[in-house]
Write a protein that binds this DNA or RNA. Structure first.
Lengths: 161, 161
DNA sequence: CCACGATCATTTGCCTACCAATGATCCGGC
DNA sequence: GCCGGATCATTGGTAGGCAAATGATCGTGG
């Protein structure tokens, strides 16, 4: 649940004059959307890890497992596109799911380039459990916001994704 | 500028019935805040990499360099707290900045545990350039939103960070 | 039929990101 | 003075995340 916060130490006394960096005029890095996205993501990941301890899935593993469970049969690269992971990334995620026998891997005789993935029975069962935890994780992540703000945030994030 | 989008392929025809995963009732992983945060972060990182090609800084390297430039002298762990990076992470980020001689590293004789960091002249100069690029990056990231929405998003992200 | 471009998957390299463990040092209390 | 808890930094392990290169295969156009 912990994540590297901004709550540690009192601000340093040093000033622009001391550092000679007068050219940074009014640019506050902590207020930039990129910084805030990184921080929000860190907090969510920490909440996720906590809430998903039972299923022992990372956010990407969870996303891939859910998608495979929805779809049934899918090639690896296609699954990557559906879950916003490039081929190099999805490869490792899928490998770990296969190692745990949550996903099966077969080859398509009609297209020998592809790896065809499908959920196992254990994968489907775990996916069902994981969704329950995931609902709580989403709630916890959005807890600081009102209902209206929660919908706003999701809508805004969709627009910039 | 490219990032693994959701635009590649048409949706698969397979249904819940085909996969046997009826328990995922109405849970749409693409609409969850965690998924959207990851995606938004990916897009921003891609924009950042593009816009910061001249300075050749990653988002974390940029944040650390800006903070060191603002403050002047700071210990490594403290810099990590200010920039939301844990000690293991800030260590690598700082090492790369030192390798490029953007940041200097000295020891405090009064506290021999600590590493005292400070910007070099080259570091201050690069920070000034990088801020110019960073303003454009923020604008590009928020471009799909109206002015009001931009402020809303930043405010909401602050609340959940 | 074959050559060429596109797609699929993998591998390597680099960078974040965290946990856990370690060793050095500091500091407060006794 | 010293002992124990806290802090500082580093290391090793695991996991995203992307670029770039590679090799296999597919499909189409000539």
């Amino acid at each position: 649940m912990r994540y590297p916060g901004l709550h540690g130490d009192p601000p340093s006394i040093a000033s622009e004059a001391a550092s000679g960096a007068a050219a940074l005029d009014g640019y506050v890095v902590e207020d930039q959307v990129g910084f805030l996205l990184r921080r929000a993501n860190q907090r969510h990941t920490a909440i996720f890890q906590d809430g998903m301890a039972g299923a022992d899935l990372t956010p990407t593993q969870f996303t891939a497992l859910i998608k495979v469970s929805e779809i049934g049969r899918v090639t690896q690269n296609h699954l990557g596109r559906l879950t916003a992971m490039d081929p190099a990334t999805i490869q490792g995620v899928v490998r770990r799911l296969i190692d745990r026998e949550l996903v099966s891997r077969t080859t398509d005789p009609l297209d020998r380039r592809t790896v065809v993935l499908a959920p196992t029975q254990a994968g489907l069962a775990l996916a069902a459990d994981a969704v329950v935890a995931a609902r709580r994780i989403t709630d916890a992540t959005l807890d600081p916001l009102t209902q209206q703000e929660q919908h706003q945030l999701v809508a805004l994030l969709r627009k910039i994704s």
